[in-house]
């Protein structure tokens, strides 16, 4: 039944994520003045697309991701995820929405150190009170090359392996949208390519939507579109990007930021 309602919603909302005039300011502390981290941002992500967000350090990339995922509340503007507007939801409703429709991957892996690979992967499912299909979990972890690591703790894994566990956790419930903040930032290039390939597959094979913050033009080139942020505003968008074009725009933005 749950499955049926969700399927209906999925077919009726072609936009996985929509930001309207989203502004986020942080009050200054002590003598510092207030910071506008996001300034009237509009953004629409169609279902089944992979979008990268780039911009100089401090341009508001993480804040954008946090507001989009309901981890932070915008000062003004609206955020709609998979047809549900976040503004009116309380903490518990937001949590439910996050575990049903969103997946997360972050630079620092964010696995629970006391749990094994298998336990970490199924945690959101257990918290949602759903039956865990052990065979499906094994199959997923097997596809991610973790078949012989199910009983290991995060401390016993390499960075790349930890990130693949985080990815398995994010993808297991087939969320409508996956948020990734510099998911390859702490990985070597082989491990990074693996992780990017898995995100790409989620988009191409299961029509999931990915929003990824990155510093790396090569990573951004795996996306369908790149959005450039500067001083909290979207200043440019590049479709079907290649790494050289992305690097060129970033260099110009960087020069602008220094001016």
């Amino acid at each position: 039944m749950t499955q049926a309602t969700r399927t209906t919603r999925r077919t009726t909302t072609p936009t996985a994520l929509s930001l309207r005039q989203v502004t986020r300011t942080f009050a200054g502390s002590g003598g510092d003045s207030a910071v506008t981290a996001l300034d009237a941002v509009d953004l629409d992500l169609p279902r089944g697309t992979f979008t990268a967000v780039m911009g100089p350090s401090g341009s508001g990339k993480s804040t954008l991701l946090h507001c989009a995922a309901g981890l932070d509340r915008p000062t003004s503007g609206t955020v709609t995820v998979d047809g549900t507007e976040l503004g009116g939801l309380d903490e518990t409703a937001l949590t439910r929405l996050r575990r049903d429709r969103m997946g997360f991957v972050f630079q620092s892996f964010n696995l629970l150190p006391t749990l094994t690979v298998h336990q970490n992967t199924v945690l959101p499912m257990e918290l949602a009170g759903r039956r865990v299909d052990r065979a499906a979990v094994r199959a997923l972890l097997g596809r991610l090359g973790l078949a012989d690591r199910l009983g290991h703790r995060p401390a016993q894994l390499s960075g790349g392996q930890q990130q693949r566990v985080a990815l398995a956790r994010a993808l297991l419930l087939r969320p409508a949208i996956v948020f990734a903040d510099e998911p390859t930032g702490a990985l070597d290039s082989t491990a990074a390519q693996q992780v990017l390939g898995l995100l790409r597959n989620a988009v191409d094979e299961t029509a999931q939507t990915v929003l990824m913050v990155t510093h790396d033009p090569v990573a951004a080139a795996r996306a369908d579109a790149v959005v450039f942020l500067a001083d909290g505003r979207i200043v440019d968008t590049l479709r079907a990007p290649d790494a050289d074009a992305v690097a060129g725009r970033m260099a110009r933005l960087g020069a602008g930021a220094l001016r």
Binding site: L71, E91, T92, T95, F104, L123, P124, L127
Partner: peptide, 15 residues
């Protein structure tokens, strides 16, 4: 941090 992580991967405040 660990508790925040639990919240992040979908535990409600009550949980």
């Amino acid at each position: 941090r660990e508790i925040a992580l639990l919240r992040l991967v979908a535990a409600t405040p009550r949980q």
